[in-house]
């Protein structure tokens, strides 16, 4: 009996250990290839060079253009998603009848469940032509269209998590505000949002991290032209799109071009890691407040 229990516990522990091995594997793989990449390209160049042309004959390995592309699409996405998501969260939490919320919340979550390749199609085939009819100067590949679509995709992240945070505000606070004659709007903005701020911020950061790591939408609709720009109407390339580009091509294993995806991957990994942990930290502090 006792031994059987021990064996079961051991097997279960091994299952849990796989998660650690995954992380170790990711870090090891990224570092191993990146280190060999940085023996050929200096870290300084990598961080400061304004051009990224590893696949050209005149090779430049500056990550900045890829970062700016990533930043651009991410910012557009957040600009779309934040007001929308927050409004939905407040509306569902304070205004909407319970039955309505019960139906709408899972429906909204479907937005996050749709495969990203489908969003990419949407951005390229529907949104870009539509935007071009408004801004004639818009290029066929650009940061704006995938950014907007990405924004729609991450709306449920912000709305769901923020709604949870708002719902977690003790009802005594809410009632105190109503008791003083405040409207729902005033209660929401003056009491609930400040009280739930950490939860909301953490949801936004999580959404940001999601947008940075998003691949297919930008790979399809943003173009493959790394350029250091803040103009959302021209083709750009993000880190993720670059990795896809290299993976699709016939780059020989072990070549410098091949190693670039690891250096780019490492950059992406570091960014998302930082954002995720900031989000956890903020959220944890917030939870402590009400326990």
């Amino acid at each position: 009996m006792k031994r059987g229990e021990k064996i079961i516990e051991g097997v279960l522990f091994l299952c849990a250990l796989i998660t650690i091995l995954t992380t170790v594997g990711i870090i090891w793989v990224l570092l191993k290839e990146s280190i060999s990449f940085f023996t050929e390209v200096s870290v300084f160049d990598f961080l400061t060079d304004k051009e990224w042309t590893p696949l050209f004959s005149d090779k430049h390995f500056g990550i900045l253009p890829l970062l700016s592309g990533t930043l651009l699409t991410t910012v557009v996405a957040i600009v779309v998603a934040l007001p929308l998501g927050l409004t939905i969260a407040i509306y569902l939490n304070e205004y909407a009848p319970k039955s309505f919320r019960k139906v709408v919340k899972p429906l909204l979550e479907i937005l996050a469940a749709i495969p990203t390749v489908v969003y990419g199609f949407f951005a390229l085939i529907v949104v870009t032509p539509f935007l071009q009819s408004i801004f004639p100067g818009l290029s066929g590949f650009n940061a704006l269209s995938p950014g907007i679509v990405m924004g729609i995709m991450i709306v449920p992240f912000i709305s769901s998590l923020s709604e949870d945070a708002l719902a977690a505000v003790p009802s005594s606070l809410r009632e105190a505000s109503y008791g003083l004659g405040a409207t729902k709007l005033q209660t929401s903005f003056k009491v609930l949002i400040p009280a739930a701020s950490s939860g909301i911020i953490s949801s936004v950061i999580l959404a940001l991290s999601r947008a940075i790591g998003e691949t297919m939408i930008v790979a399809i609709a943003a173009g493959q032209q790394p350029r250091l720009t803040l103009d959302p109407t021209v083709p750009i390339e993000t880190i993720t799109a670059f990795i896809v580009q290299v993976s699709l091509g016939d780059v020989p294993h072990g070549s410098l071009e091949y190693k670039t995806i690891f250096a780019a991957g490492l950059t992406l990994f570091v960014f998302t890691l930082i954002l995720n942990n900031v989000s956890f930290y903020v959220n944890r502090r917030y939870k402590l407040k009400y326990d």
């Binding site: 998660t19 650690i20 995954t22 992380t23 594997g25 990711i26 793989v29 990224l30 191993k32 290839e33 999580l206 991290s209 999601r210 940075i212 790591g213 998003e214 691949t215 993720t240 990795i243 896809v244 993976s247 995806i261 690891f262 991957g265 992406l268 990994f269 998302t272 890691l273 954002l275 995720n276 942990n277 989000s279 956890f280």
Partner: peptide, 21 residues
């Protein structure tokens, strides 16, 4: 902490892991 972090890693990074391993 590790599991929370894993859930937030972009899927493409898993691709890189899969490619190597």
């Amino acid at each position: 902490i590790n599991i929370s972090n894993l859930a937030g890693i972009p899927s493409i990074i898993y691709g890189i892991l899969g490619l190597e391993i």
